[in-house]
Amino acid sequence: MIEIRVDEEACNGCGLCVKDCPMGVFELKSSVSSPVHPENCMGCLSCHEICPAQALEHRGVVPCRRMYVSMKVCRMLNRVI
């Protein structure tokens, strides 16, 4: 089962995840997004990409290979504080 957590401090209630999710997992509740149907999540992580504040966390999602990220960029990403 996929567990979804929303960082409530980071979330600014823009509702983009609600609009974007193909499975209708999220709903806006008093300006904070809430995952009301995590059982329908298929792990595409489109919500991660569309959230301007990176407020979403998924547990139990299989990560895909991302070899299009070059090693130089990958190293830089790991070293940004």
Binding site: D7, E9, A10, N12, G13, C14, G15, S31, P52, A53, Q54, A55
Partner: peptide, 11 residues
């Protein structure tokens, strides 16, 4: 994360 995560404004 991004600056939006630290910003206290709401949409």
């Amino acid at each position: 994360k991004s600056v939006c995560s630290e910003c206290d404004r709401i949409m």
